[in-house]
């Protein structure tokens, strides 16, 4: 003999929940859309002509609490800065978004790239920019004013 009515309530509520439908999706085939503000891997924003918006001012590098960003620069031929490498250590990044907040030129953004598992440790260090001239801060500001 089962005492009490708790078991009966359990059956009723479980049955009710069975009718409420699934809350999961079949992942690789179906994907949920992320909210616009979701923060995942950092990526570069480029101008329409494919040139970087980055001016190599190093504010993002100084802002990052975990030092996952690294920029090597040299002097460009026609004056200004040349970006040898813009390195992003995604394996150590916690996706806090402080670098993106700090960037005065909106040259980087938090992407929605969340499938970050990899077989090779080398993939955890990404070179976002390589061997390009940095944007001139003055031209960049002017461009923003025009837009």
């Amino acid at each position: 003999m089962i005492e009490g009515t708790g078991w009966l309530k359990g059956f009723v509520i479980t049955f009710r929940n069975m009718l409420r439908g699934p809350i999961t999706v079949r992942y690789p085939e179906h994907k949920l859309t992320l909210p616009e503000r979701s923060r995942w891997a950092v990526q570069q924003r480029l101008n329409d002509d494919g040139s970087p918006r980055c001016t190599a001012c190093l504010i993002c590098v100084k802002e990052c609490p975990d030092d996952v960003l690294y920029i090597e620069t040299s002097a460009a031929e026609g004056g200004g800065k040349h970006i040898d490498r813009y390195v992003y250590e995604i394996g150590a990044c916690m996706m806090c978004g402080l670098c993106v907040e700090a960037c005065p030129f909106s040259a980087i953004e938090m992407s929605h790239e969340y499938e970050l598992a990899t077989r090779h440790g080398g993939d955890l260090v990404r070179v976002l920019l390589q061997d390009v001239d940095a944007a001139s801060p003055r031209r960049e500001r002017k461009g923003e004013a025009d837009a």
Binding site: L34, E36, S38, R39
Partner: peptide, 15 residues
């Protein structure tokens, strides 16, 4: 958590 992610950008590490 979906609401909090939409507000802050992360499910638990809000910042």
């Amino acid at each position: 958590l979906d609401v909090l992610e939409a507000i802050s950008g992360s499910r638990m590490m809000f910042n």
